[in-house]
Computed example of a mutant assay.
Amino acid sequence: MKKITIKDIATEAKVSISTVSFVINDKGEKMGISAGVIKKVQEVAEKLNYRPSMIATSLRTGKTRSIGLIVEDISNQFFAELARVIEDEAKNIDYRVFYCSTGDDDERSAELIHSLLQANVDGFIITPTQNLEDKIDLLLKLKKPVVLVDRYFPGQRVSHVVMDNYEAANSATKFLLNKGRKHIAVVNNKSEMIQMKLREDGYRDALKEEGIYNEALVLHMDYHSSEETRIAEIMSFFKKNPKIDAVLFLANYMGLAGLQAFRVMGISIPKDISVISFDDHDSFKLHTPTITVIAQPIEDIAIKSIQLLMSQMTDMKTFDVEKSLKKGKLIVRESV
């Protein structure tokens, strides 16, 4: 299909190319062009489905109408769904989204931020890696609109949107206690990121209230380990602790590894062990039995992050830093 140019519009509207240029750049009235001609040019541009050059528009306005979305792993269902909703919301306000994955790698994250800065994106939505605080500070220093999602750095003055991770884990653990479970394990990674610490804190405090917290029932795994290694570590952990009657997995990839480990070990859910995992996944709905989860309010997080970013992109001088906490949902299925 031939690309429509301002020359095509000028020919169709029977006006000069300069007249079309002034109109589509919102300078028609200023240049003394009549309301009738402005309307005619706009109608022809719409009829021909004219789309202005992104480069030209960027040079004229300093804006690219684009957002850089940096997530941990776009193949993870949580981040994939988050990206989809953010992209839909951005499309509604005529913005495009460039999204990329960090693999929880600090160096990769820093490279992505610099690449998106060079691409002159108008704002950033980021799920930061553990040591990315300095790069976020750089964006703030450059007065670039930025919103963090899923996690944040305590004390850093930047808008963020996250689930109430402490409350979610605390409530899930109490739910297991109310079901009569006494030896409740938790599987976490070794990350020092705030969302993972808060989840474990919520679990621990619920058990301490009952006087039954047992540090031996806490398993920490390396985030970057392979799935085979995770399965082996989970199997070893549960063999050493045969009294465990319930487990809380603090991320869905750990939960998926746990289900495979239990199948190999012949552990029956929920007869032998009750299972709850953070972050819903299609596999949890298809598993027999279906798996109880703590679902993040993905749509709420995505919509709020776009709203906060837009408030900055509209006026970086007057916007207020907002720290938004969203409530998760315990979806009870057959595994408890």
Rank of each mutant, 00 (worst) to 15 (best):
K239T: 13
Y166G: 08
N252K: 10
P242H: 09
P242G: 06
G255E: 01
N188P: 11
D245I: 07
Y223M: 13
A172D: 03
N241H: 15
D164C: 12
R157Y: 15
L256Q: 07
L217K: 02
A251G: 13
A168S: 15
H224M: 12
V218E: 01
H160E: 10
G180R: 06
S191V: 11
N214E: 03
S171P: 04
N170L: 11
F249L: 03
K190R: 15
A216V: 08
Y213T: 04
K208G: 06
I194A: 08
N178C: 12
E200V: 12
Y203S: 03
N241C: 11
S225R: 10
N170K: 14
K197A: 15
K243P: 00
F175G: 07
M163L: 12
D222S: 13
S226I: 05
L248R: 05
M254T: 09
L176T: 04
R157D: 15
R157G: 13
Y203Q: 05
H224P: 06
D164S: 14
P242K: 09
N189V: 08
L250I: 04
H224F: 12
N165Y: 05
S159L: 09
V158Q: 06
R204E: 13
E200P: 04
A257D: 00
D205V: 08
G211K: 06
A246Y: 02
K239F: 07
Y166R: 10
V161G: 06
K182M: 01
V187T: 09
K190T: 14
H224Y: 12
R204L: 09
R157S: 15
F237M: 01
A172Y: 02
V158L: 11
D222E: 14
T173Q: 03
F153E: 07
I234P: 01
L256V: 11
I231R: 00
E209L: 08
R230E: 06
K240A: 10
L217A: 03
A257Q: 00
G255W: 01
K190F: 11
L248Y: 06
S171G: 05
F237I: 01
T173D: 02
H183L: 03
Y213D: 04
I184N: 00
E210L: 07
Y253S: 14
S171A: 13
T173C: 05
I194M: 14
S159W: 06
M235W: 00
F238W: 05
R199M: 08
S171L: 06
A206H: 02
N189I: 07
Y166Q: 09
H183M: 06
R199W: 05
I234K: 02
A206V: 06
G180C: 08
K240T: 05
P154S: 13
L256E: 07
K239M: 09
P154T: 13
D245A: 11
I244D: 00
F238P: 01
T173F: 01
G258N: 03
E167K: 15
L217H: 04
E215C: 11
L248E: 04
D164A: 11
G202C: 07
H160N: 15
R199F: 07
V247W: 00
K239S: 11
A216T: 11
M193Y: 04
A169F: 01
L177Y: 02
A168K: 05
D222K: 08
E209P: 05
R230Q: 13
G202N: 08
N178I: 09
K240H: 09
E210M: 14
S226F: 04
M193F: 07
H220S: 12
S171M: 05
I212H: 00
F238L: 13
